[in-house]
Amino acid sequence: MKLTPKQKKFADEYIKTGNATQSAIEAGYSKKTAQVIGAENLSKPMVKSYIEKCMAEIASNRVMSYTEAVELLTSIARGEEKETVVVSTPIGVEEVEKEPDTKTRIIAVREILKRYPNNDKLVEQQIRKISAEADIAEANAREVTDNGTANEIRVIGFDRRAEEDERS
């Protein structure tokens, strides 16, 4: 059995407001009987089923799906997703859009790889190597002096350790 137009209108209003009496009035039922009709409509299996179906649909649209999550992580890892940051300039501040930094991209790659069962040791070692390189680049950036020249930081044995990690 299908819902009548009034029952459907009642159910749609009830989904919006959560108030059975007001929904019955909005659906066109008499104000005198709205409270009773509202309660009756909520007890009818077809009306109840329709409301539950609509509420489930609303809830599923609010939650990110697995595919959406992996797509977002992928766009972050590729540097396609931009974020707005406030930057200080000689004349004040301005908002600038920038790509995610290397560490954020690495974290996104790790999160993607967790979702695939064939995640092997070679991939983990490559990520460790990239992470170490990012740490070195960050340390180099911190060593920039006030006049804009960079102090060289030598990391002795880094390449040898990275090669050893890849072999094991």
Rank of each mutant, 00 (worst) to 15 (best):
M1K: 04
T4D: 06
Q7M: 05
Q7A: 05
K9F: 00
K9Q: 03
K9N: 03
F10Q: 00
A11T: 01
T17C: 04
A20S: 04
T21P: 10
I25F: 13
I25K: 14
I25T: 11
E26L: 12
E26R: 03
A27F: 04
G28K: 10
G28D: 08
K32Y: 10
T33K: 15
A34N: 03
Q35H: 12
V36P: 01
V36S: 09
G38M: 08
G38W: 11
E40L: 14
S43H: 14
K44M: 08
M46W: 02
M46Y: 04
M46K: 06
M46S: 07
K48D: 05
S49K: 15
S49A: 15
I51T: 14
E52D: 12
E52N: 09
K53A: 13
C54T: 06
M55H: 04
M55W: 08
E57Q: 07
E57R: 04
I58Q: 15
R62F: 03
M64V: 15
V70N: 07
V70H: 02
V70C: 08
L72I: 04
L72D: 02
L73P: 12
L73Y: 14
S75C: 13
I76R: 00
A77Q: 06
A77D: 00
R78L: 02
E80Q: 15
E80F: 13
E83Y: 14
T84Y: 00
T84S: 02
T84E: 02
V85G: 07
V85F: 05
S88F: 01
P90V: 00
G92A: 04
V93S: 13
E95H: 06
E95C: 10
K98H: 07
P100T: 01
P100M: 07
D101K: 09
K103F: 11
T104E: 01
I106G: 00
I106S: 03
A108D: 01
R110N: 10
R110I: 07
R110T: 10
R115P: 08
Y116Q: 10
P117N: 11
P117D: 14
N118A: 07
N119H: 11
N119D: 04
D120H: 12
K121L: 10
K121P: 03
I127P: 13
I127F: 13
K129C: 13
S131A: 15
E133L: 09
E138F: 08
E138R: 06
R142H: 06
V144Y: 11
D146E: 11
D146V: 11
G148H: 15
T149K: 13
A150L: 10
A150Y: 05
A150M: 12
A150W: 02
I156T: 10
R161A: 05
E163I: 14
E163M: 10
D165V: 01
S168I: 12
